[in-house]
């Protein structure tokens, strides 16, 4: 899922302090699980902002709301009229949600209340780790299911580099060396020999380096179009 982290309170305050009607708008999917931007976090943040406003002696009406997902239009429909009564929206959704709402809301600014961090998992409550880079060309079958693109600090295809230190990465003793993990895993799977082949240069154009990406499923699009024709 997408992992986010709430922005520092001062940064958020600077974003909202000159508005009169603020909606703190949470998303109850990924960012709720990482305790950054769900309905509960929206409620807490709204109340902190109200307190700050009263301490500063400024009048700001801060409301809060949340919907299940900020990345599909139908979830917005029931709340959009309400959303439009604000003069700014502090979105606690990931960056996808901020973009998506900005394009739909008209002249009301949508500001980010969280930093969208990475695609990750929750190995333990309160711990989130990056495991995928969304590169658009998955090679996990070649690396024992451990991703060197996301998890090697240098995204090496033929690691490990000389910086491995007791299974840790040269950048920090808190970061596992992905290639150390890959080799250990491949040994267990009995396919270590695979690692002796030179992995070729990557095609990075499948990832964000090839420009913004879009996927069109023709068969789905066609069905939708048919439904629409039937309806009309």
């Amino acid at each position: 899922m997408i992992i986010g982290k709430q922005k520092p309170f001062e940064e958020i305050w600077d974003m909202i302090k000159n508005f009169k009607k603020v909606l703190v708008f949470g998303c109850n999917t990924c960012v709720a699980i990482c305790h950054a931007g769900g309905g509960k976090e929206a409620e807490i943040l709204a109340s902190m902002l109200r307190m700050r406003a009263s301490l500063e002696g400024v009048e700001i009406e801060v409301k809060h709301a949340a919907i299940e997902r900020h990345c599909e239009p139908e979830f917005f429909e029931p709340v959009m009229d309400n959303v439009r009564t604000s003069d700014m929206v502090l979105s606690l959704a990931c960056g996808v949600g901020v973009n998506f709402l900005s394009e739909r809301i008209g002249n009301i600014p949508v500001y980010p209340g969280i930093n969208t961090e990475f695609y990750g998992a929750v190995p333990k409550a309160g711990i989130f780790t990056e495991l995928c880079a969304g590169c658009g060309d998955c090679i996990l079958h070649l690396t024992g299911g451990i991703c060197p693109i996301a998890r090697c600090a240098k995204s090496l295809m033929n690691g490990p580099c000389g910086g491995t230190n007791n299974g840790k990465c040269e950048i920090s003793q808190d970061v596992d060396c992905a290639w150390y993990l890959i080799l250990e895993r491949m040994k267990k799977l009995g396919i270590l020999e695979k690692m002796f082949e030179i992995q070729p240069l990557r095609d990075w154009s499948t990832g964000m380096y090839g420009g913004p990406r879009r996927i069109i499923l023709d068969h789905i699009e066609e069905v939708e179009a048919q439904e629409e024709r039937k309806g009309s």
């Binding site: 240098k154 995204s155 295809m157 033929n158 580099c161 992995q199 240069l201 990557r202």
Partner: peptide, 10 residues
């Protein structure tokens, strides 16, 4: 921003 387009073996 580190580049790391290719690695040293490549």
């Amino acid at each position: 921003k580190g580049v790391y387009d290719i690695d040293s073996i490549q």
